[in-house]
Each structure stands twice: as structure tokens, then as C-alpha cells.
Design a protein around this nucleic acid. Structure first.
Length: 480
RNA sequence: GCGCUUCUAGCUCAACGGCAGAGCAACGGACUCUUAAUCCGCAGGUUCUGGGUUCGAAUCCCAGGGGGCGCACCA
């Protein structure tokens, strides 16, 4: 099966000098006339992806992370020519030669010297079809990345998105911080946690479901603009839009309210889109999404009223609301107040229809335990969610900074928990103590980075944008 | 967790109740300007696993496993 490849890596070099990325090496040589030589010598390295043997002349395509280039290997001028003809697709080599244009006008490196850097013992799939089997692509991402250019581009763009976000936030005076992943109280969001155990302390710990409360402690501590980009873990279902671990951006800005955060959000996302895709208008699954600010702003109650076709509000008749819930197949649970019921109706009828970027504003206080009461609308908080392509992209609020009110909110969550809501938020005494020391007016924001990357890479499944997505354990037939 | 669906050579796929095949890769050989696919040759299989039905199962049925989609849950 793998007959040829009794070759190991024992005899290949430990390093290879003077490598230039292929994209850099070939820069400026696009217009070399067919059949001419550039006089420029380059050293490149990468994987042999295609081979066309013509006897005393071999053409190969060499690829590295920056691009690919044709290698022109002639028996008359290349060292170790016979060995070159024995290379396999997928072998790593390094090579030095002059940039030339072939008779057909293909820019090539006319190899003088080359070295095998690592042989491959397994093939990289069909050279035309690549590897399409999704299981192989997710489990063996190293194969996917080499075999499928679009996969490679997706992850390169993901990196560009992260770099762009960091650059913009640093430019605006935000400081990047790291807070605990291992937490004694899993709080700051509505979700079930993963539990683990620390042996020396003989203590259960939780993988964080959000960094939120730690970041606000830092604002109490005087860091007025902080952000964290990091993994959070939620012990919930897996779907095309959910991976148990995912990457969240959270930021907090002192002296700002949710209106400031709205402007920050639309500007940040629009500029990132512009930088990584070249445009603020992005095609996603056949639909054009326009991220150019300003985005539409509407209240949750306005949007759900629009969809349902009649006025929906916290002040409406509760019996009428129950009728509407029934009509949409929703059964309210004991303990649900008007706010929760309206939120459920909104989620069922409205969320998936919000295609263009939209700020959904002013959520019911009942479902927003960390957001500050709206300055003029009783029963609502100053909170928004940004929706794009029918999905939540961001969640933000004017942060609740009153320790007494925060305690009441936690206690209300505690009652929901007692009623069986496993995702109701857990009270954090130290956080309340921190608020006692004074949290200035603060705007906070959370953005699901994976979903942002999905939109900016036209990916329909979160696994397309997570390098090593969570899968069931693979069972190997033999253990050697 | 539930429903639907899928799994055949290293990869991409045929065969759909009657001898398990092709292209590419690999392996051997020919070829000095090719562009996934030149030519000749040679190999390659627990058809995901285990049961069952049948004269006969990759194919039909049952159970299990992996993947995908949908629902539920969430971001």
C-alpha cells in the first residue's frame, strides 16, 4: 500500500537556509516574457503538489503558505535530477534556482540545487477533487489545509480578522487582558458549564462560560478600556452554529453607554470587513450583507410587533400575548413574566428574518441580569444584540453598576434556577463586592468571533472556521 | 437527547438482490516546455461493525459506531 515509502525522515536536514516565501520570491515577475530569464535567483521551500515528468525535464508545482510556483527541473542543469523524478506528491523540498518564464510563459524556478526536507508516506487525496469527505477534513485538518485551497484561505482570513480587531482596539486605547478560564463560579452568561477538578486544592472548577464579570472587575480596578479575545466553553448542543468551545471578544469601555458601543460595534465590524474582504458589502450564502454604518436600529418590541402584525409590548394584555405564543407553537413555562414571553415570541418569529445588520435594542430586564435599567423606559434595559444573516453576532449593554440592584437581579436569577432553569445566572459575591467599590458608567460588548468569521468567509458551518472542531473520539483499529 | 440521511481501494466516485469496478494517487517503465487528466504495465478491498432474511447481500431488515442535515438548547 505504502510500498515506496520505506523512506523515513532520518536522513533529511535539520534546517534549510535562506528560504523566501513563494509569494515574495515571485513578486514583480508577472510580466516576464515567455522564454526569457530574469537573472534573479531565489530559494523556496514547500510541498510538491503536482508533478509532470517529461523524461529529461520535470515540471512540478511547489506550494507554501503564501502561494505556489512552478519548478522547472532539467536533467542538464539540476543537481540530483534522477532523485527529483522519484519525488512523490506531498513531499517537502527546498530548492534554489533562477526565476524564468517557460516557452508557454509560465513563471518558474529553474532548479539548480534542491533538498528533500521531509518525505510523505501518505497521499494528499485526489489532485483534482481534493478531499471532500467532511469527517476527514475536520479530523485531519492537516490534510484538508493542503488539499483544499478554500479551507486554507478561510483560516488565513480568520487570522486576519483577529489581527484587524486587535489593531483597531489597540488604536482606540483598549488594553488586551487575560482572565481565568478556570473559575469557581461559572457566571456572566446563561449557559451550562463544563466541570473539572483541581487535585491539589481538591476543588471543583468550571471552565468559563464568559469572561464578563472578571473584565468588569478590571474596570473597577481602573483599567478603563479592556478587551479579551478568548475561548469560552458551554456544555450544550452541537450544531452548524455551535461548537462547545468558541472564541469570544468582550470589551468594556468606561464612561460609555450602549449607544457608544453600538457605534463602536458597527465601525469595528465594517472596518474589519473592509480590511479582510476588501469591501463592506459581503456575499454570504447568496445574499449581499451591507456592513456600512449606520446599521438599522430598532427596539425588540418594534421588531416583534412588525413580524406578528400587531402591537407587542410589556404593557399589553397578558392573555392576548399567551394566545400569540400558542399560535406560534410556544408554551410558556411557570415563572415566565411578560419580558420572557415577549423575548420567546421575538426569538421564534423575528430573529431569523434579520438579515442585514440590525441592532435589536432595549431588552426586557427579566432576561438581562447584568444590564442597566433603561434611562427612560421602565421594565427595559439598555441592551442591544446585533443580528446578521438571522444570527446573533453581538450582545452589549450599558453595564449595571449598582451593587444593590445587581444583587436583586442575581436573586431573581436564583429563583429561576430553583424553578429548574439550569442556565439562570449564578450569584457571584466577590463581583458584588467589587461593585461596592464603584464601577463607573461602562459600556460592554461581546462578539462571537467564530460567527463573524463565518460571515466574512461565507462559511455555512462553524466547523468550517474552527481548525479542530469538537467531534466524537475517533476509534483506531490498531494500536501499535 | 430525538428524527431523517449517509458510510465501497489512499482520494473522488460507480455497481442498487446475481463474478466488487473506474479515474487519480502509489508501484515498474518510456518521454527535454508541461499546466488535474501523455503512453505502456502492475498492484490495490473485513463494501464501517455485528446479527438476520435469501440459493445468493455492498445492495433488503435489525442493532451498534462515525459523519452530515433538521429539531431541541444556545452564541
Amino acid at each position: 500500500m505504502e510500498q515506496k515509502n520505506e523512506r523515513g525522515s532520518a536522513e533529511v536536514p535539520y534546517r534549510f537556509d535562506d528560504v523566501t516565501p513563494i509569494a515574495v520570491a515571485i513578486q514583480g515577475c508577472d510580466d516576464l516574457a515567455p522564454g526569457t530569464r530574469s537573472g534573479r535567483a531565489v530559494t523556496v521551500a514547500g510541498r510538491v503538489m503536482l508533478l509532470r515528468r517529461q523524461g529529461k525535464l520535470v515540471f512540478a508545482n511547489l506550494r507554501d503558505s503564501s502561494g505556489s510556483v512552478q519548478l522547472f527541473v532539467s536533467a542538464a542543469s539540476a543537481k540530483n535530477f534522477d532523485e527529483f523524478t522519484e519525488l512523490s506528491l506531498g513531499d517537502w523540498i527546498g530548492a534554489t534556482g533562477e526565476l524564468i518564464s517557460t516557452k508557454r510563459g509560465e513563471l518558474s524556478v529553474d532548479i539548480e540545487e534542491w533538498s528533500l526536507l521531509a518525505p510523505t508516506r501518505r497521499g494528499f487525496g485526489d489532485k483534482w477533487h481534493g478531499v471532500t469527505d467532511s469527517e476527514t477534513r475536520y479530523r485531519q485538518r492537516y490534510v484538508d489545509l493542503w488539499a483544499n485551497p478554500t479551507s486554507r484561505q478561510t483560516f488565513q482570513r480568520r487570522s486576519a480578522v483577529l489581527a484587524s480587531i486587535r489593531r483597531h482596539l489597540h488604536d482606540q486605547g483598549f488594553m488586551e487582558v487575560e482572565t481565568p478560564l478556570l473559575q469557581t463560579i461559572p457566571t456572566g452568561a446563561m449557559a451550562r458549564p463544563f466541570i473539572t477538578h483541581h487535585n491539589a486544592l481538591d476543588m471543583d472548577l468550571y471552565l468559563r462560560i464568559a469572561p464578563e464579570l472578571f473584565l468588569k472587575r478590571l474596570v473597577v480596578g481602573g483599567f478603563e478600556r479592556v478587551f479579551e479575545i478568548g475561548r469560552v466553553f458551554r456544555n450544550e448542543g452541537i450544531s452548524p452554529r455551535h461548537n462547545p468551545e468558541f472564541t469570544m471578544l468582550e470589551l468594556y469601555e468606561a464612561y460609555a453607554d450602549y449607544g457608544d458601543i453600538m457605534r463602536l460595534t458597527e465601525n469595528l465590524v465594517a472596518e474589519v470587513a473592509q480590511e479582510v474582504t476588501g469591501s463592506m458589502v459581503v456575499e454570504y450564502q447568496g445574499v449581499e450583507l451591507n456592513f456600512k454604518p449606520p446599521w438599522r436600529r430598532a427596539t425588540l418590541e418594534e421588531l416583534v410587533s412588525e413580524r406578528v402584525g400587531e402591537e407587542i409590548s410589556l404593557e399589553m394584555d397578558e392573555g392576548r400575548l399567551e394566545v400569540l405564543l400558542q399560535r406560534f407553537g410556544l408554551n410558556s413555562a411557570p415563572g415566565w413574566g411578560m419580558g420572557k414571553k415577549i423575548a420567546e415570541l421575538y426569538e421564534e418569529t423575528t430573529e431569523s428574518t434579520l438579515i442585514q445588520p440590525t441592532f435589536v435594542c432595549d431588552f426586557p430586564v427579566e432576561i438581562s441580569p447584568l444590564a442597566r435599567d433603561h434611562r427612560s423606559k421602565p421594565g427595559r434595559v439598555e441592551r442591544f444584540e446585533a443580528f446578521v444573516a438571522g444570527r446573533e453576532l453581538a450582545n452589549a449593554f450599558s453595564e449595571l453598576n449598582d451593587p444593590l440592584e445587581q444583587r436583586r437581579r442575581f436573586q431573581s436569577q436564583g429563583r429561576a434556577r430553583a424553578d429548574g432553569d439550569e442556565e439562570a445566572m449564578v450569584l457571584d459575591e466577590d463581583y458584588l463586592r467589587a461593585l461596592d467599590y464603584g464601577l463607573p458608567p461602562t459600556g460592554g460588548l461581546g462578539i462571537g468571533i467564530d460567527r463573524l468569521v463565518m460571515v466574512l468567509t461565507n462559511s455555512s458551518h462553524i466547523r468550517e472556521v474552527v481548525l479542530f472542531p469538537t467531534l466524537r473520539q475517533e476509534i483506531f483499529d490498531s494500536v501499535e
